[in-house]
Design a protein around this nucleic acid. Structure first.
Lengths: 236, 236
DNA sequence: CCAAAAGTGTTCAGCGTACACCCATGG
DNA sequence: CCATGGGTGTACGCTGAACACTTTTGG
């Protein structure tokens, strides 16, 4: 049995994949190998298949492109105006993904001609993908102010200066080192390691890693890592 | 031209319509006049039409049921598992609507057998609609802690005790009258009226109304109407 | 030995919270 | 006149913000 006299539509999932390389935020884009907009850059996307949910589709697509699974993925608002894709109407469910840029495996993506772009040098994207990125960034800035999601962007072991640089980069601001350290450590989300990263200073900075236990359990807690007046006027 | 070899799906919008009657939060439900699940209660929904966006579809559906337009409407996460509708696969885009219960016009809804239910006496709903309501409530509790969205539930003129009751109801808690008043007034979102509501006390409580200017402009600001430890561990 | 980044404590202001009494009025 | 709900002010603690010097070590 079916619902009669109703129009069925294509539904796609598009992944807005963010990474952080220690200095800049990057977005993973692919170069389309097919029309329309052949050769133009675009988010990695795909149609929802008959037997999968949107979440599964997003995981599948991310995995196809990056080889990664079990990454942070969050759905944002659907894009649905009828004209958004010139070929045919497609409803897009965008997902924000945060991945540790070091885990991204180059060999996987060859089919898609994927490349990381820093946010400052984003090309024009197809359709409304620039808008999606904008919306995703907004959400990220809003949510990261209260929840420890940015930690997803970091490698296993990272230093506090690195972490701080990530926050400073996202909000394009400077944060006081002492206050930042105190706040982050007070959440008990981090474990101090024994060794240091000497790559960016002579003294070396201690590595930290996520305390998985506390991380999951405190994930939704409201923290306060960045100064109030830097928190964007939110989309949530 | 079309995308080939792809499955097209039905996409529906479902409206989770909240109201507040001065004492309780209510949800507007309809009784299905058609199979499947005939006679069971459900959210008001409808398929997205070829020429409309999801937002427009939500507005249309809300308007069909309530006669209202220009109401608070916010999309939440898509529900997309393939089995969620036994008849045929349907992807649902749920929208949370907040309406002034007094503006709801009874005559409009006759076709749908609509009825308000308090949140405590919600019936079993079809499909995954109970889940949607749950998710909507969660979002509401989270967002209302920081943004003045609950004001949408109030009539033109309302009193501070009414407003407070609304917040207390949503978080199922008691709030200190003095602190609440101070916080709310400090936002400058309200204009004090000259007259009083005497319906619930002999002394009477002054009416307030929204200061439209400031309301829109401060809407996304982060306020702090309810005590910290009452804010739910958030979904956002 | 010096440049460069890491690490660490204290002070102060403002916000958030707790708390209790007087006011106005209809019955 | 009194019961009921409305309206108001203050004191305190804690959190968030501002701020500067010492430590380490590779070159």
């Amino acid at each position: 049995m079916k619902y009669s006299n109703q129009t069925r539509l294509l539904v796609a999932v598009d992944c807005i994949i963010f990474g952080f390389d220690g200095t800049d935020y990057k977005l993973l884009l692919i170069q389309r190998g097919f029309a329309p907009e052949r050769e133009k850059w675009s988010l990695m996307g795909g149609f929802i298949q008959p037997e999968e949910s949107a979440d599964k589709a997003a995981e599948r697509i991310l995995q196809q492109l990056t080889g990664l699974h079990d990454v942070y993925l969050e759905q944002i608002q659907a894009f649905s105006i009828p004209e958004r894709d010139p070929i045919e109407r497609v409803i897009a469910l965008p997902y924000v993904a945060l991945i540790d840029i070091e885990k991204y495996q180059t060999q996987i993506n060859d089919d898609f001609h994927a490349r990381w772009f820093t946010l400052k040098e984003l090309p024009n994207l197809i359709f409304d993908h620039n808008e999606m990125v904008e919306m995703a960034l907004n959400r990220l800035r809003y949510k990261a102010a209260f929840h420890p999601i940015l930690f997803e962007l970091l490698p296993e072991k990272f230093t506090l200066p690195q972490l701080q640089a990530m926050y400073e980069g996202l909000y394009d601001t400077k944060i006081d080192k002492r206050n930042f350290t105190r706040k982050v450590l007070s959440t008990k989300l981090l474990k101090k390691e024994k060794d240091k990263d000497k790559s960016s200073s002579k003294k070396g900075a201690f590595y930290y890693s996520l305390d998985e236990e506390h991380y999951k359990e405190n994930f939704t807690n409201i923290h306060n890592f960045i100064p109030k007046n830097e928190i964007p006027v939110g989309t949530e």
